[in-house]
């Protein structure tokens, strides 16, 4: 499996083809969102909503050995596309790698412009929530091992 940084570099390369054109970038992000499997309606509950996002974003996780798997959905296409990129980078990675990940691809692909200042809090909330899950699983694991 590719490392977090290998996947980030892949994404950067893909976005370079778009040549920084905002419209193409947005359409591409939406296309990526479309490819993200829809979440079961049963999981789209208040408890799974990431607080701080303007649009609705649901996030669930499950731990497979040391590897954390993410599932997410949103009521807006572009947000879904953005979160699909985060999932692509972090999905199935080891807990420590997720916790320590430096997500440099966001800047490099010009996503900050897509997100804008009004949505950047929401986007930070998504990243924070994903890392928090990793941290929580790690804490649980350590608790089990020490008891």
């Amino acid at each position: 499996m590719s490392t977090i940084n290998q996947i980030q570099d892949e994404i950067i390369e893909e976005f370079e083809i778009l040549g920084g054109d905002m419209e193409s970038t947005i359409f591409y992000i939406m296309e990526l969102g479309n490819k993200l499997p829809d979440m079961n309606d049963a999981d789209k509950i208040e408890d799974n909503i990431i607080k701080g996002c303007q649009s609705k974003v649901w996030l669930t996780t499950n731990l497979d050995n040391e590897h954390l798997k993410f599932n997410a959905d949103s009521n807006t296409e572009i947000t879904k596309g953005l979160i699909s990129l985060l999932i692509r980078v972090l999905n199935g990675q080891k807990l420590d790698d997720i916790i320590n990940a430096d997500l440099y691809f966001i800047d490099k692909i010009g996503m900050k412009r897509v997100i804008g200042s009004q949505r950047s809090n929401g986007f930070s909330a998504m990243i924070k929530q994903m890392k928090m899950y990793a941290l929580a699983y790690k804490g649980q694991k350590e608790l089990r091992e020490n008891s």
Binding site: M22, E23, F27, M30, Q54, S55, T76, E77, I78, V114
Partner: peptide, 14 residues
């Protein structure tokens, strides 16, 4: 079938 945020962002791109 399209959220207004998406409309706003796609239009901004134009």
């Amino acid at each position: 079938g399209m959220h207004h945020f998406d409309i706003g962002l796609m239009m901004d791109a134009r």
